[in-house]
Amino acid sequence: MGVPAVIERMDLFRALAARRTDEIVVMTMTATLQWPLVSRHELDFDFLAFGMGHAGDFGLGLALARPERKTIVLKGDGGLLMSLGSLVTWAACAPGNLLVLLLENRSYELTGGQPLPPRVDFAALARAAGLAGGGATGTGKVERIETLARFADALPRLLAEDGPHFVVLPVTTREALPPVNHSDHAGRIRQLQRALGMA
């Protein structure tokens, strides 16, 4: 039996940052600590403490409101368990410009590494929620990518083709996490609106 494939999260972020251009990136939990180490983009949005489990829902709203660009969501598997019904809603709305990257580390990492139930198959849940048939728009896709090389290969396609995409990425991290940042939440919203040319 082989060792389960897993991607170093910072390497994944570096690959994404190298390809990302004008997409909105909504991040939450540990991604809010590490993504800023590779990206200082005006369309980055730190969702930490905006509502447990709901980064993807906020991303869905953004994607629907701003169809001219992709919205990428970096969220964890623990957060998804807090709002599994979101999968159904993403499939029901199915905007082509939503890309959810599920960072699967099988733990509530930011709160101390408490383990998740070990046998949850997040890709299967997404398929069963309706994304398998493409969702409401017929273009939704679910996939699991287990190596950095395959993720790097897939990125141009994920950023270009219609989704919504739900991509499960098994990750780990060897790097120490920076401290949590609880900056002004209202300011984060207004900054993103300015970056979108609205304020």
């Binding site: 905006f50 906020f58 869905l60 709203g61 994607a63 629907l64 409101a65 701003r66 809603t89 609106q193």
Partner: peptide, 10 residues
């Protein structure tokens, strides 16, 4: 959360 995203997006 969806409504907040919609409002943020205009």
């Amino acid at each position: 959360a969806i409504a907040a995203g919609l409002w943020t997006g205009g």
